[in-house]
Design a protein around this nucleic acid. Structure first.
Length: 579
RNA sequence: GUGCCCGUAGCUCAAUCGGAUAGAGCACCAGCCUUCUAAGCUGGGGGUUACAGGUUCGAUUCCUGUCGGGCACGCCA
């Protein structure tokens, strides 16, 4: 079992460990305490007796009986029962559970922060979209997941660095630069057919207009020059594009770098603004080009060569990734002398490891899963500890509009952008919807549902609960900070017990979400907490005559609101005081 | 064809790294507002967990096979 965080869990584990030593000193079973689904099974259940049944050759209930007798007394334990096949169910005293209210109110925004990470440095790299156009809804999920995951890890006590890998070195950027230039030529009445595999979006025309406005006819060349030696599109679309790029570089000379830089800066800036509006921020924007500029790509290839992991074939340089479990070997340097994306990616990962992170997490689209073995292989070949690297795969979000799949293709220009989605659905609902599924599950994002009726959005359900608490506290108009010292011994009802236990669970939810890299657990927890609060709200009154009861209940719901704020903050969702 | 992921209520999804009677929302039916927000609550019907075996005290969970769906299999990035 991993390090327990809850005081109750640690305490009870310790008690059971003592009982185990007394009953069966030679046994070393792990002590598992879980929260039963049903309240009648107590607050915590231990299956130790069933684990021991086989090695001890005794019936589970006998062993449970012995363990129970050997269990040291504790002032937080109300009673212990044996149930079912041999479960040992522990019931905590009400007083012990009530203590959580004060704990939450005193810790405030820090309630739920745990020491699991022990200050270890972890890097989370996510989004890392090619800066060749607006982010689309698929990127949005990676952004929401990566940002929420980073927040969760931060709350779990890790020192988190959020990073965006900028693919500014590849062919795609050249295609974007070319696309922009061709649109620019079009503005200057130079008739060159626009290739079908170039970037079609309107944003390309916009950039062309900017350049034209700023530099007039400086980059104009004749159609004959542009098309000189270019093979027909119908023959080979890729060769057609590459030849156009080559001509662009030749004709523009040093100006090509300007166009290239301009479109990169524009798109990256747009991407950064888009993400910032979405509440997604990065500590580092890491340039792929820098890996070439400082020679790290060349160095890493040399290192692999020196280690005997490379070989020459068909004029290209191959990495023997099959030795590390990959399906086939991979090219790191092409016949034309250019390094592959894989080569710069190895260099990038080496760089990550050299920066001294204890753990590196890559958030990738699930379509990249075939890429994992070669990256791990390369790390091993370089003598690095590949277990420090975790790839978190995020399945694509499929957008549905009018009950039909919305086509998404960056080049065709017929896609729905993340920005469109945010504006139509709202940032809160968008962030929440994205992390409402396990990340490796397909996500059907039904826009019509998300934007049509706000009351169908689960995020409003949680926010509404928070707003209700705020409303009650406002009408009470007392000193909220005084609730920290409130006597909460009046909290005895089933509704109140349920809420207390929920609040106690919160740090463990953080722990689980951090360990499993699963921020969706926070979303589900908050839905459950909100549901229990709404039931409580409908069944109880808070602003009652009895001062003691009133203060106890207000303290409880103030604690509930605090945990909601904390949880929603991790997901990047606001907690409005009024709705 | 090979590899990875997935298959749970009519729909969208849960189920505490093997636990007790598989749970929510939506939809459907019936109720609850002259007192703190009805974007809420209460109750009801809904299941051979795709299928067939196996492992053990115990399987939605682990293993094998079949069927069905998604993704990936470039000297692209």
């Amino acid at each position: 079992m991993t390090a327990a965080v809850s005081n109750f869990k640690i305490h009870l584990s310790d008690l059971f460990a003592q009982a185990l030593r007394a009953v069966a000193p030679e046994q070393t079973a792990t002590i598992v305490l879980e929260r039963p689904k049903q309240a009648q099974h107590g607050d915590y259940a231990c299956n130790l007796a069933m684990q021991l049944a086989k090695p001890l050759r005794r019936s589970p209930r006998d062993i449970a009986q012995a363990l129970m007798a050997a269990l040291p007394a504790s002032d937080v334990v109300e009673k212990v029962e044996i149930a079912g096949a041999g479960f040992i169910n522990v019931f905590l005293t009400v007083a012990a559970k009530q203590g959580v209210v004060r704990g939450v109110l005193q810790a405030g925004a820090d309630y739920g922060r745990i020491a699991l990470g022990a200050g270890k440095k972890v890097q989370v790299e996510f989004v890392s979209a090619n800066p060749t156009g607006p982010l689309h809804v698929g990127h949005g999920r990676g952004a929401a997941y990566g940002a929420s995951l980073s927040n969760v890890l931060d709350a779990a006590g890790y020192k988190v660095s959020r990073e965006f890998y900028v693919n500014d070195a590849g062919r795609q950027m050249d295609i974007l630069a070319l696309s922009t230039w061709l649109r620019y030529l079009d503005l200057h009445a130079i008739a060159v057919p626009f290739p079908p595999n170039a970037y079609q979006g309107d944003y390309v025309r916009d950039m062309a207009k900017q350049i034209s406005l700023a530099h007039r006819a400086r980059y104009v060349h004749t159609a004959a020059e542009v098309l000189q030696g270019v093979p027909a599109v119908e023959e080979n679309a890729d060769a057609h594009l590459d030849a156009l790029i080559a001509n662009a570089k030749k004709l523009l000379g040093e100006d090509y770098a300007y166009v290239h830089q301009h479109v990169l800066t524009e798109q990256l800036g747009d991407c950064r603004n888009d993400l910032a509006e979405f509440g997604v921020h990065f500590d580092e924007w890491f340039s792929e080009q820098s890996l070439f500029d400082n020679g790290l790509v060349a160095r890493v290839v040399e290192a692999l060569k020196a280690g005997g992991h490379l070989y020459q074939q068909d004029g290209a340089l191959w990495f023997r990734s099959t030795e590390f479990g990959d399906e086939k070997d991979r090219v790191v340097q092409r016949e034309n002398g250019l390094y592959t994306y894989f080569a710069s990616d190895i260099a990038y990962h080496l760089n990550k490891f050299e920066r001294g992170f204890d753990r590196v997490i890559n958030v990738w689209g699930a379509d990249h899963h075939g890429y994992i073995p070669r990256v791990n292989g390369a790390l091993k070949a370089l003598g690095l500890d590949s277990s420090k690297l975790t790839i978190a795969l995020v399945q694509f979000a499929v957008l549905y509009r009018n009950g039909q799949k919305a086509a998404m293709s960056t080049r065709s220009g017929e896609f729905v952008t993340l920005r469109d989605l945010r504006h139509e659905v709202g940032n809160d609902a968008t962030r929440f919807f994205y992390v409402l599924r396990k990340s490796d599950q397909h996500l059907d994002f039904d826009m019509d549902l998300a934007k049509s009726q706000s009351n169908e959005n689960p995020v409003y359900y949680i926010q509404y609960a928070h707003a209700r608490v705020c409303s009650v506290l406002q009408q009470w108009s007392g000193d909220s900070s005084a609730l920290r010292q409130a006597d909460v011994s009046a909290l005895q009802s089933d509704y109140e017990q349920t809420l207390l236990q929920h609040l106690i669970d919160y740090p463990q939810v953080i722990e689980g979400a951090a360990e499993e890299l699963a921020p969706h657990l926070i979303a589900f927890y908050l839905k459950d907490l909100a549901a229990d609060f709404h039931s409580y709200y409908n069944a109880s009154r808070f602003l009652v005559e009895d001062e003691g009861i009133k203060r106890a209940r207000l303290a409880l719901i103030a604690a509930v609101a605090q945990v909601m704020r904390n949880g929603l903050a991790l997901l990047g969702v606001s907690a409005p005081e009024k709705m």
